[in-house]
Structure formats: structure tokens, C-alpha cells
């Protein structure tokens, strides 16, 4: 169980995120959607105690993440490429994470053997450092790295971006399987509404740092989300038009 309690984050007195209350039960697959700058990555960074909340706190399995380091053993994440060590090969990286999470080389190998399809022969035995890999392959490494060591909370920021279509499908299968077996709570953000609705049981829409929708996923969810963002887009065009008009008026006036 993860509880968000009155959390807010401000940069120079501008509030970029504010969530009064949000509870994520154990084992739920939780999706976060929103336009750029809506606060998705900010929220994830707060989960990982990478930034300091201005107010409030996040409690993960009984541990306040900004006060104790005890959440680290059961939490893993892949936010961006700064979660990869560029001068290691993929194998070395996996063993590195494995070792940090108390897994032997053999255990890591066994886990990796389950990702043969996902890797599509482009990750292991490549004789390449991670910094020389393509963005898509880096992402694959990061995602699998986040699954090592049976974490109870897995945080993935934009996991579908940069992946090829086959891998996107495989990733969806993978995430669904984890959810079905109730192995871990998964927190995913995405710009792709279709992927999120397929993978997540629950979707929260963020807008300008505030949760504006909290949906239990159903058949109708995709339509609902699409309608929502279409409306947003129309509103924004209108706003822009009205600004333009007022500018025109000013000019003519």
C-alpha cells in the first residue's frame, strides 16, 4: 500500500504538483497520464526521494520515503538514462543491480533467460557498452534491470516510448503478467493512451500538477480519455484564438 498524503512540490513558489490524497493498494497496476509538464516525472521522483517534497509525504509500505532509506530494498525504478551505467555492458549492469539486491549471478541469469523474447537478441552478448546502444535497447535494459530482485514496487516512466512495436506488445504482456500474479505494484506513466488502458487497472490523469480524473479501467476508458484530451486540445486552440483576437483588436485599436 502506497499512500500519498497532502504532497506538494514547488519550484520558486510555483506549485508544480499537488495531490491531497491518493492511495494505491498493493499489487495494483497504476497508470499516470497527462501532457508534458503535468507533473508525472515529478511525482515519480518524489516516490524515489530524488526530490524533496515542499509539503506532505509519501508512505510506501509503512515507510515515509523522505525520512528513511528502508524503502530501497523493495523499490526499483527506471525513469531515464541516468539509471543506466554507460560504461558497463548489459550483462554487467544486470549483475551489478543483482548484487545490490542480493541476487547471485546464477539467479540473475535465470531471470534473464525469461526475457529472451523481450531482448530480441539485441541485448545480451553484444560486446557493447550501454552508452553505445540505441535508445530503444537502452530502455529494454533499464526496464529489465528494474525487475531484478523481486521488487514490491516498480516505477517505470514512459516505458513504451522509443520501443519498437513488437517490444511494446511484449512489454504489455510482461506487465500484465506481473499484475495478474500480484507480484508487485506497478506505477507506469505514458503518453500513449491505448497502452496505458491496456496495461493498467487504474488510471489517474494529471493536469498542471493536479489529479483531475481517477478511473478504474474498463472498456469505455480509452474513449473517455481520448474525449478528455480532445476537449483539452479544443479548449487550448480556442484560448489561443481568443488571445490572437484580442491581440488583433489591440493592434487595430
Amino acid at each position: 500500500m502506497i499512500t500519498i498524503d497532502n504532497i506538494s512540490k514547488e519550484y520558486n513558489t510555483v506549485e508544480v504538483l499537488r495531490i491531497d490524497e491518493l492511495n494505491i493498494p498493493e499489487g495494483q497496476s497504476f497508470g499516470l497520464v497527462g501532457n508534458n509538464g503535468a507533473g508525472k516525472t515529478t511525482l515519480f521522483s518524489l516516490f524515489l526521494d530524488l526530490i524533496q517534497p515542499t509539503r506532505g509525504q509519501i508512505n510506501s509500505h509503512g515507510i515515509v520515503v523522505s525520512e528513511s532509506e528502508e524503502w530501497k530494498p523493495f523499490t526499483s525504478a527506471f525513469i531515464d538514462e541516468s539509471f543506466l551505467i554507460g560504461y558497463l555492458t548489459a550483462e554487467e549492469y544486470f549483475y551489478f543491480i543483482g548484487e545490490l539486491r542480493g541476487r547471485t549471478k546464477e539467479q540473475v541469469d535465470e531471470l534473464l533467460s525469461g526475457f529472451k523474447d523481450f531482448f530480441h537478441g539485441e541485448i545480451l552478448d553484444q560486446k557493447k557498452y550501454l552508452r553505445d546502444m540505441s535508445k530503444g535497447n537502452q530502455k529494454k535494459v533499464g526496464i529489465v534491470g528494474a525487475l531484478i530482485g523481486d521488487p514490491k514496487v516498480i516505477i517505470l516512466d514512459e516505458p513504451f516510448a522509443n520501443l519498437d512495436p513488437t517490444t511494446q506488445i511484449r512489454l504489455k504482456q510482461l506487465l500484465k503478467k506481473i499484475t495478474e500474479e500480484r507480484q508487485a505494484t506497478i506505477l507506469v506513466s505514458s503518453h500513449d493512451l491505448m497502452h496505458v488502458t491496456e496495461v493498467c487497472e487504474r488510471i489517474v490523469v494529471l493536469e498542471s500538477g493536479r489529479p483531475v480524473k481517477d478511473i478504474k479501467t474498463s472498456e469505455a476508458t480509452l474513449k473517455e480519455l481520448e474525449a478528455y484530451f480532445a476537449e483539452r486540445s479544443e479548449q487550448e486552440t480556442e484560448n489561443a484564438d481568443s488571445v490572437e483576437e484580442s491581440n488583433d483588436e489591440q493592434q487595430t485599436g
Binding site: 524515489l48 526521494d49 530524488l50 532509506e69 530501497k72 530494498p73 523499490t75 526499483s76 525504478a77 525513469i79 531515464d80 541516468s82 539509471f83 543506466l84 551505467i85 554507460g86 543491480i97 545490490l100 539486491r101 542480493g102 530482485g149
Partner: peptide
Amino acid sequence: SEYYKLMMSQNISY
């Protein structure tokens, strides 16, 4: 520094 976020969120004690 290039992967500091990983070091800070992984299971490592400072």
C-alpha cells in the same frame, strides 16, 4: 554523476 539517480534509488546504503 551520470547515473547518480540510480545510485540514490537503488538498494545501496550511503
